[in-house]
Design a binder for these strands. Structure first.
Length: 565
RNA sequence: GGGCCCGUAGUCUAGUCUGGAUAAGACGUGGGACUUCGGAUCCCAAGAUCGGGGGUUCAAAUCCCCCCGGGUCCGCCA
C-alpha cells in the first residue's frame, strides 16, 4: 500500500516535469527523509534536472513544487532546499490501510510461475549441525516468501546416496561391529559410525580401495543386497534429519535421490550428449575443459574406474529440475561458487537453465570450523534443546501461573523462534562466529516480536473485540498520535517488503521489518491507551491489523506466534 | 599465487544492488518510567575519522583503482 503512495508521488513528479517542458530523467526515485518533520517521501530529482538545464537545483525544485498537483492522499508538498518533500494525509491513508488489511494480508495473487527451491540437501552421514541450519532456514523462509509473493513453490532436498561419504557409512555397517545405541537419535549414531570409519581410514589409507569398490558395485552392479544397504543407511539417517528439520518448522515437498539419475540413464545420456557435442576430452578420465570460459579448472565427469562424480549427477539433476519449473533456486554455501560456475557452463552447453543461487557464508565455532568427519560440531538437536530450555527458564520466572504443558509449548515456540530469527536477520554473505548468547537472545530479538503479538491478542480479548464485526471506513476515527501514524505507516509497508524480499531473494529484509513492526507496536502500546479510550473501536482495529501483520510476517520466517507468553 | 565474499561505536548488525539531507538499530554501559490495557516493554544519555589511501561526482558507507586484515574455493570429495 505504501507502494501506491510512492507511485502516485512519482507520477505527479513526472507529470509536472513534462508540463514544465523538461526532459524526464530516465528514473525518478524517492527516498526517506531523514526525519519525520521533513515529510514521508522525498525527491532529489532537482539535481538530475539541474545538470540538463544548467540551472540551480533549488530553483528547479521550487518550480516543480509550485506546479505539482497531488492526489488527496497527500496533505501537502514542501520545498526544502533542493529537496521536494511529500506529506501524506494520514486521515485518509490510515482509514484505507486499516480497512484493507485482512487475514491474508501480504499474500499476492498467483503469478503462474513455478519455482523449485532446493535447500539443505545435507549428506546423510550424520546429524544436521548448526552450519547446515543456515541453509535450511534461508531456504525455508525464502520459499515461504516466494509462495506469498505469488509463486508456485516446490521445495526439494537432494539426497546424496551415492557419494564416498555414504559408501563409508555402508562400509562401516558391513565391516565394523558397531553397536547402535537405540536410545540415541539414529542420525547421531550414524554420525558416530562415520567418524569411526574416518579414523580407520586415517590409520589405514588402503581402505579407500574397499570403499571405492563398494561405490563401483553400487553404481554398476544390480546386486540387490548392497543396494538395500545403501538405501537403509541413507533412509535411517534421513529420518533423523527430517525429524530435526520438523522441530525448526522446516519441511520439503520432494526428496530427490541422486542415484535416480544413474539408474534412469540420464547421467549416461548427458555424457553422451556432451561427447557428441565434441566438448569433452579424455585422459585417464572424461572431463570438460573450461579455459575458454575463463575457468582454469576443468570439470571432471567420470572417475578413471568409470563411475560418476557428484558434479555429473548434479548436472543431471539440474537438467531434470529445469524441465519441471519456470525458475530454479539453489541455496548453497559460498564454498560451492566455483562448482556452480562450472556446472552452469555445462548446463549452458546442454541448453538447460542454470540455477539462480542464494549463497551464504559459513557459521564457525570460535575455535574453528565444524566437521562431521572429525566429529567436531554443535548439532541442531543440541541447539534446539538449549534454546527451548533457556526459554523455559524465562517462563518459569515470568509466568509461574502457567501449567507445565503450557510452558513447554511456549518455550518451544520462543526457543525455535530465537534460532530461526538469529539466522534470518543476518545478510547471508556475513560470516558468523557462533556464540550461544548471541544466537539465543530473548531481548529485542524474536521474543520481542512474539511478545508484541501475544500482547495484541491479550488486549483484543480483554476488550471483547469481535473480529467478524465490520466497521465502515467512514466510522474509523482519526488516529493521529505520532505512534499511531508510525504504526500505520509501518503496517502499510508490509507488501512492499514481501515484494522486495522475494525479488532480491533476501530473507533478512523481512526479518528486519518484523522487528520494526513490533517496535512500532510496543511504542504505540506504551503511549496510547486503547481500552476505555474515546477511540477504542478504531484503536482495536489497529491492534487487530497489527496482530495479523506480525503473525503473517512471523509465519514467513517459519516462526510461531503464540497468543500468550 | 589466482578467484569470490566480508571489514560500519566496546560487541553484533542494517544501510552498499539503485550515490542524495544530521550514518539507523540492538547488545553492553550509565540514568529514568508501574494508583491506566502484560516490564520478554518504553524513554533519555554517552559511544563511529563507515579498515587505509587515491579517484569519479554538485554529492560517496554506497561507484572505480590500489593496499591491509579476516573467511573461503582452486580434489578422480560432496
Amino acid at each position: 500500500m505504501y507502494r501506491n503512495l510512492e507511485q502516485m508521488a512519482i507520477k505527479a513528479l513526472k507529470k509536472t516535469i513534462n508540463k514544465l517542458g523538461y526532459e524526464e530523467p530516465s528514473e525518478i526515485k524517492l527516498e526517506q527523509p531523514p526525519n519525520p518533520e521533513l515529510g514521508d517521501l522525498a525527491s532529489a530529482v532537482s539535481f538530475q534536472l539541474a545538470k540538463q538545464l544548467k540551472r540551480s537545483p533549488m530553483e528547479i525544485a521550487a518550480e516543480i513544487v509550485n506546479e505539482i498537483k497531488l492526489s488527496e492522499l497527500f496533505e501537502k508538498v514542501e520545498l526544502k532546499g533542493p529537496y521536494i518533500n511529500f506529506y501524506v494525509n494520514y486521515n485518509k491513508f490510515s482509514r484505507m490501510v486499516l480497512k484493507s488489511i485482512k487475514t491474508d494480508y501480504g499474500q499476492f495473487k498467483p503469478n503462474n510461475t513455478k519455482i523449485i527451491v532446493e535447500h539443505t540437501s545435507a549428506n546423510p552421514n550424520g546429524p544436521l549441525h548448526i552450519g547446515h541450519i543456515r541453509n535450511s532456514i534461508i531456504g525455508d523462509s525464502i520459499s515461504r516468501i516466494l509462495g506469498f509473493a505469488g509463486y508456485e513453490v516446490e521445495t526439494q532436498y537432494y539426497v546424496n546416496d551415492m557419494g564416498r561419504q555414504i559408501a563409508m557409512v555402508v562400509w562401516g555397517f558391513l565391516n565394523l561391529d558397531f553397536e547402535m545405541d537405540k536410545s540415541e537419535k539414529i542420525d547421531h549414531e550414524i554420525g558416530k559410525l562415520y567418524f569411526q570409519v574416518n579414523e580407520k581410514l586415517r590409520a589405514d589409507p588402503e581402505l579407500k580401495n574397499e570403499i571405492d569398490s563398494l561405490l563401483k558395485q553400487y553404481e554398476y552392479g544390480n546386486e540387490g543386497k548392497l543396494e538395500k544397504s545403501f538405501e537403509n543407511a541413507v533412509n535411517q539417517c534421513l529420518e533423523g534429519v527430517k525429524y530435526t528439520l520438523k522441530k525448526i518448522n522446516v519441511s520439503h515437498d520432494t526428496y530427490v535421490w541422486e542415484s535416480k539419475f544413474v539408474k534412469d540413464g540420464s547421467v549416461a545420456s548427458i555424457l553422451q550428449t556432451l561427447k557428441e557435442k565434441n566438448v569433452t576430452k579424455t585422459n585417464e578420465v572424461l572431463y570438460l575443459p573450461l579455459e575458454d570460459y575463463g575457468i582454469e579448472k576443468e570439470l571432471v565427469l567420470t572417475r578413471s574406474d568409470g563411475t560418476s562424480l557428484y558434479s555429473t549427477r548434479d548436472l543431471a539433476y539440474h537438467v531434470y529440475k529445469s524441465k519441471n519449473c519456470d525458475e530454479l533456486i539453489d541455496v548453497l554455501g559460498s564454498d560451492h561458487k566455483l562448482a556452480i560456475d562450472q556446472l552452469s557452463i555445462a548446463l549452458d552447453i546442454l541448453d538447460s537453465r542454470s540455477p539462480e543461487v542464494i549463497f551464504y557464508e559459513f557459521i564457525t565455532l570460535p575455535e574453528g570450523s565444524m566437521s562431521t568427519r572429525r566429529g567436531v560440531f554443535i548439532s541442531v538437536d543440541e541447539m534446539v534443546e538449549e534454546a527451548v530450555q533457556r526459554a523455559f527458564g524465562q517462563l518459569e520466572i515470568k509466568r509461574p501461573d502457567l501449567t507445565e504443558e503450557e510452558k513447554i509449548d511456549i518455550a518451544k515456540k520462543v526457543g525455535i523462534g530465537a534460532i530461526r530469527y538469529f539466522i534470518a536477520k543476518l545478510s547471508p554473505e556475513k560470516h558468523i562466529v557462533f556464540k550461544w548468547d548471541e544466537a539465543l537472545s530473548f531481548e529485542r530479538g524474536c521474543a520481542s516480536i512474539q511478545y508484541a503479538h501475544a500482547r495484541s491478542c491479550k488486549l483484543l480479548k480483554k476488550c471483547g473485540y469481535d473480529e467478524s464485526k465490520s466497521i465502515a471506513e467512514s466510522e474509523i476515527e482519526i488516529l493521529d498520535h505520532p505512534t499511531e501514524i508510525d504504526l500505520i505507516k509501518t503496517l502499510s509497508k508490509f507488501t512492499s517488503v514481501i515484494e522486495e524480499s522475494a525479488r532480491l531473494r533476501r530473507v533478512h529484509l523481512l526479518a528486519q521489518y518484523a522487528l520494526d513492526l513490533a517496535g512500532a507496536f510496543n511504542k504505540f502500546y506504551k503511549s496510547v491507551q486503547v481500552k476505555g479510550s474515546n477511540k477504542e473501536v478504531s484503536r482495536l482495529l489497529l491492534v487487530d491489523r497489527t496482530r495479523i501483520t506480525i503473525r503473517n510476517a512471523l509465519y514467513l520466517l517459519g516462526i510461531d506466534a503464540p497468543n500468550s507468553m
